[in-house]
Every structure is written in C-alpha cells, then in structure tokens.
Amino acid sequence: MHQKSILRQLIIPVATVCAVLMLYQTLIWAGLLNASDGITQWENNVVRAQRYLYRSNEPIRLVLVGSSLANNIKASDIAPNVANLAMAGGATQTGLEMIRRDTAQPSILLVEINDTIDRQEDSKLIASLYDPALYWLRMWVPIFREEYRPASVFVSRLRRFSDSESRQLANRAVANPGLLDAEVARLVAERNTPFTLERAALIRSEAEGIKVRLLILRQAGWRVVLFDLPRDQRIENTTQQKQVRAMLYEIFPPDQYEWLPAPPARDWLTQDGLHLIRADAHDFGQFIYDQLLK
C-alpha cells in the first residue's frame, strides 16, 4: 500500500483524537466539568497521589501516610491544607516513598503503623506516577490526570445527586450488623493464632525499612508522628494484634518516636471490624486536628 494512502486512512482518526482532546480540555478549563475523586479504590489512590504531586504552592500543614484504615479519613476531616496519602489496599511505605521524592517544605508527617505494612510499597503505582514522560504530560495537560477520566467524571456527577456527604456523616450506624459480626468472628478466629515466623519476619523487616526512611525525613526537618487507628474491640484483643503492637513499640520506642496519644475511649464503629464508618473516621480526623494542629 502506498505511503499516501496510509496517511489518508489515518488522517480522520487522528484529527478526531485532536479535536476531542481539545474540546475536553477546553471544557475543563472553562470549569464546566468537575474533577472526580475516583470511582474505584485504585483510581482513588491515584487521584489523591496525583493531587499531591500537582498541588499548588501553598504549604501543606500535615501529610498522612498509611493504608486503607487511614484512607477513609478525608483530609478535610482534619483541616485545610492537609494531604492524605493513605492508600486503600496499600501500605504506609507508598506514601513515604512519595514524600521522599518530593521537594515539599517539611511539616508534620503522620505515619500509620500496624500490620498492614507487610503489604509493602506499591511499586507499580510509584512507577506510574513518576513515569518521566507521563509526569510532565499530566503536569501541563490536566486531562491526562486520573481525576479527569471521562467515565469517572460522569459517574461522580451522578453520585453527587444521590450520595451527599452530610447524609453519610449523619448515618452513625453500621450498614449491616449481621455481616459485621460474621466478618469480625472470622477475623478474630484468624488473628487469635500467632503470626507465622515468615509473616513476623516480614513485618519486622518492613518496619526496619520504614525506620530508615523516617530517620532521613526527620533529618530533613519533618516532625514524624506515629499512630494506629481504633478497631473493633474484639479484634483489638486478639493475639496477633497484641503481638504486632509489642513488636512495633519495640522498634519505634515511645521515648525515641512521637506517637499520637490514644484516642478518646469510646465505642469506635467499623464497617468490617477494621475500617471506621464514615462518621467515626470524621471524628478521628477531628481528634488528629485537636492533637496536632489546634
């Protein structure tokens, strides 16, 4: 086939791509489309990471890193100019790696520390965030950021009609108590046996790795505060929970590392034994504000 004919075949699809991209970018610049917070767990992680990367120059007062446990605390639950880099399904190390690569003015770094650190750093996410070509493309052409994926923008718009934040906060009950009890019973049974040697060694080695990263960040001027989130009381008292708590206090002794004080004693409600319900996550955010930013 001749070169000319190949080009003729490509011209309409390529022109369509250019036209649609320009139109979409214009709609976003004109403020006619709102960014999405992400409609899946992975997307939500990427959106919050990219928002941190491409934020304005305003100084951040506090950065939170952690797993899905801290993920459902919204940054706005704590205060303005707070960033939450806790990754659902992920671990503290991913957020720490982002802080390490960042040139932000040091402030307070709130680090969730518990058995979820055995999930290790999400190297796939880190690689996609810092891909040399895509990093710059996303910086200058926002439509390539995760928060502007057309399907997510559309679905988020639909959700806004049905799922208001105030309604979620007003709901202080557990969605499905029967399922919660079943899940807690399963977790208690699972966690009442001591860690296997391999898992204990993995948690220890990841904690040691975190320790090294924290040392570097502290030297750079960050105020590092460690914390864990409240869980269902039945799970708090399991063998593994006690074991991991003891191990982490040994690696990060309270006389050498600042720990967030224990939250007020109350019945913290969870969806599944581990993750706080939305209203209680909001309250825990307020508790962080009271302790560190007030």
Binding site: I12, V14, T16, V17, V20, F144, P150
Partner: peptide, 15 residues
C-alpha cells in the same frame, strides 16, 4: 468508521 476509531483512540489515552 474512522471517527469511531478516533474516539476509541482518544478513550485509550484518557480512560
């Protein structure tokens, strides 16, 4: 058909 292919290509980039 070509416009459809163009839209698919755009969505590969964006979504």
């Amino acid at each position: 058909q070509d416009v459809m292919l163009g839209i698919m290509l755009t969505l590969i980039f964006l979504n």
